[in-house]
């Protein structure tokens, strides 16, 4: 190994960041809608939705991965639907991003829901008596107040996506350059003789990223509470 950081390792870190970023960005709008619905609306099937959102947190990751394979694999109903649109997710990095998004979703929704619940509905009512339409109330009043929660939820989902292993390897396997994310790479390095130093370097990076994510999320949560107390 010539450089301190091997090309395979770099590839895995880059891929992980790409997968986690896409997972986070794509799930954010759906996460905001879901969390707002759970926090503010009452509708039939609310408990069912809540259960569904939390399922990936409780199920063994292998099971989630296998379910995804059944659903989104080349033979699965969703897989065929996507194939018709010329999108393939099985054994692709897009599949890894989908898995990461689903696994991080409950964490994101929990953080968002909490921040929505902490907002005094009076602020939203005040905005609508000042003439704001419901959408504009959400955009100009609710969302800015929930912003620290939005960031905290995104950071958590990102960190989860960076570390997701079981469901990913089950659904999209471990293809270097395509689906070999950081944890999969660590796992692969440990399988070959002499791979320990590479694995160790990735472990250090992994720990650093996760730790940073946690610190950021905690700090934002404290800010959220302070900000709402000042209202």
């Amino acid at each position: 190994m010539m450089t301190w950081f091997g090309p395979e390792e770099l590839q895995a870190v880059r891929l992980s960041i790409k997968v986690a970023s896409w997972a986070m960005v794509a799930s954010l709008p759906i996460g905001i809608l879901t969390a707002y619905a759970l926090a503010r609306w009452s509708f039939p099937g609310k408990q069912l939705l809540n259960g569904l959102v939390h399922l990936p947190l409780i199920l063994p990751p292998v099971v989630t991965g296998y379910l995804l394979l059944l659903l989104f694999g080349p033979m699965g109903p969703m897989g065929q639907l996507l194939a018709a649109l010329n999108i393939s997710v099985a054994f692709r990095w897009t599949g890894a991003a989908l898995t990461a998004a689903i696994m991080g979703f409950p964490l994101m929704v929990r953080a968002l829901r909490l921040s929505f619940e902490l907002i005094d509905p009076k602020l939203e009512r005040a905005a609508s008596t000042l003439g704001a339409s419901p959408l504009w109330v959400f955009w100009s009043v609710t969302l800015p107040l929930a912003l620290p929660g939005v960031v905290a939820g995104s950071v958590l989902a990102f960190a989860k996506a960076m570390g997701e292993f079981g469901a990913t390897i089950t659904f999209v396997a471990n293809i270097p350059g395509e689906t070999q994310t950081l944890p999969s790479a660590i796992y692969a390095f440990l399988q070959v003789p002499g791979g320990e130093t590479s694995a160790l370097r990735l472990v250090v990076i992994s720990v650093l990223i996760s730790f940073a994510a946690l610190l950021v999320s905690e700090a934002l949560n404290r800010r959220l509470i302070k900000r709402l107390a000042a209202a």
Binding site: L123, A126, T129, A132, A231
Partner: peptide, 17 residues
């Protein structure tokens, strides 16, 4: 939002952001 009324609330509800 379409009524020509405005409302002042007990806890005033100024937008802290």
């Amino acid at each position: 939002n379409k009524r020509p009324v405005s409302m002042v609330f007990q806890h005033l509800a100024l937008f802290p952001t």
